[in-house]
């Protein structure tokens, strides 16, 4: 079995990360999944969330990603995200502002489908906040 897996996180602006890691946990559209070396080829869209990386030295690291997809192939795993940043750069205030805006939008929308959509966005963002909180706490220890 391969020692690790090659991970690339790419945002439209730049290559955020490219290194060999032990495992990657990705926020897939249908739930989190973890990829180890020699994973079967798969492709999944992402929901906003945090990618957890366990490096070859056993240290873990987190990256924030938003709307994109993960492509697992024999060559490794590539995460293409519209926005990607390390946890340290995670823009908490920006998300809070977005959340506020989405809530305000929701109040003004009549159309049922659109309401659902905005509600989804709100749920996603709130989850994000909670997760960020958890990660921050686990880092303190």
């Amino acid at each position: 079995m391969a020692e690790g897996i090659k991970l690339e996180i790419v945002s439209p602006e730049k290559l955020v990360l490219s290194e060999d890691v032990r495992s990657v946990t990705v926020p897939g559209a249908e739930g989190y999944f973890t990829v180890l070396g020699d994973h079967a080829p798969m492709m999944s869209t992402l929901r906003p969330g945090f990618v957890t990386i366990v490096g070859l030295d056993g240290r873990s690291d987190h990256f924030y990603v938003r709307s994109g997809f993960a492509d697992v192939s024999n060559a490794g795993i590539t995460i293409l995200a519209e926005a990607a940043s390390s946890l340290a750069d995670f823009d908490r205030a920006g998300i809070v502002a977005e959340l506020e805006k989405a809530r305000a939008d929701l109040a003004g929308i009549e159309d049922h489908e659109q309401r659902n959509f905005v509600q989804d966005v709100i749920n996603g963002l709130s989850n994000l906040m909670v997760e960020a909180e958890n990660l921050n706490q686990s880092h303190v220890h």
Binding site: A29, P41, M43, T45, S73
Partner: peptide
């Protein structure tokens, strides 16, 4: 051509990627 597993379906992925 590798046999990919798609999550969600292939069509859904394509549909979400095209606008992007």
């Amino acid at each position: 051509v590798v046999d990919y597993e798609y999550e969600p379906s292939e069509e859904a992925i394509l549909e979400s990627l095209l606008p992007t």
